[in-house]
């Protein structure tokens, strides 16, 4: 059985990816299963979806904790989500990235690592940053759990004619442009972090969420230190971040009062710097700024 895990963000179509793959497997007479991670996740929050493919009927009703293949739909996830968690030593990692696969080699014995600039292809062909079908092109090229024609058939079945054509075009381009690293061919001494998950540029520290191993449950699961959601950094959901041009800022506070995440607070000089730990990158501040002092910029990638 082949177990595949997709990492994306709420609203990016990770579930659709998993379902298209399952659909493709079914058209080949295989057995398949696709399902989302069930939870209260909101748009932008890191989410996972899963796909199983086998020659025999699949009788498992559990999450996939040791996948054979991991696909990462959004490169900004690499900063906060441990995407290789549980990935089998013989597994394959496929990442949406402008960088080559050698940037994602780490001390993990993998079978293959592949990258494709899915965002670039998506913006060019689809006109928006939806990478879910595109990553499937990279998957077929790298490991071929199903035939390319099966995926295109699944896409045709799912989308209307115009969108199907665009998605298939994008898929095929991804298939062509995928860069693959066969790990057994790769010098072992270089199996280390090639690109540390350090903060890049303007986007300040966004830390992975610490998982406490032991919590004393109060009566009725009551929370005695409310306001502690501040320990959860929603900045990790962000694909775009706001950049303030202080020369144009008139310190009016519009960005502050209109931020759903209370990410802006006034400093001693009267400016309103943003706290990127919480900014989800919605862009309200940039949209509403009366002087156009705020610009939204795309988040940069980080390594695994």
């Amino acid at each position: 059985m082949l177990e595949i895990r997709f990492h994306g963000r709420g609203g990016q179509g990770a579930v659709t990816s998993a379902e298209l793959l399952a659909e493709a497997a079914l058209t080949e007479g295989k057995h398949a299963q696709a399902f989302p991670s069930f939870g209260p996740e909101r748009r932008g929050a890191p989410v996972t979806s899963y796909c199983r493919i086998d020659e025999l009927p699949i009788r498992l009703r559990t999450n996939i904790s040791a996948p054979d293949i991991v696909l990462v739909l959004d490169p900004s996830l690499l900063k906060t989500v441990n995407v290789t968690d549980g990935l089998k030593e013989t597994g394959t990692l496929i990442i949406n990235s402008q960088k080559g696969p050698e940037h994602f080699v780490h001390n993990h014995k993998l079978h293959k690592i592949a990258t494709v600039d899915a965002t670039g292809i998506a913006l060019q062909i689809l006109g928006r940053s939806i990478t879910n079908t595109i990553l499937l092109g990279a998957l077929i090229r790298t490991i071929a759990p199903v035939e390319l024609s099966s995926i295109t058939a699944a896409i045709q079945k799912r989308f209307d004619q115009k969108n199907a054509a665009l998605n298939i075009q994008a898929l095929q381009q991804a298939y062509q442009e995928t860069k693959i690293l066969n790990m057994p061919d790769y010098p072992t001494q270089e199996n280390q972090f090639a690109d540390a998950p350090a903060a890049t540029g303007e986007n300040a520290p966004v830390q992975p969420q610490a998982q406490s191993l032991w919590i004393e449950l109060e009566l009725g699961c009551l929370i005695t230190n409310p306001g502690n959601s501040k320990t959860y950094y929603t900045g990790s959901w962000r694909s775009f971040y706001p950049l303030l041009n202080k020369d144009r800022c008139i310190k009016c506070g519009i960005c502050w009062i209109l931020c759903p995440d209370a990410a802006y607070t006034q400093d001693t000089e009267g400016f309103y710097p943003v706290d990127l730990n919480y900014c989800k990158g919605c862009g309200i501040c940039a949209h509403e700024c009366p002087t156009g002092a705020i610009t939204m910029l795309q988040e940069k990638e980080a390594g695994v």
């Binding site: 209260p40 996740e41 909101r42 748009r43 932008g44 959601s229 995440d261 989800k280 862009g283």
Partner: peptide, 11 residues
């Protein structure tokens, strides 16, 4: 209403 709540971006 503290930061770190999980509403969608732009909620």
């Amino acid at each position: 209403f503290a930061s770190g709540h999980r509403a969608c971006p732009g909620c």
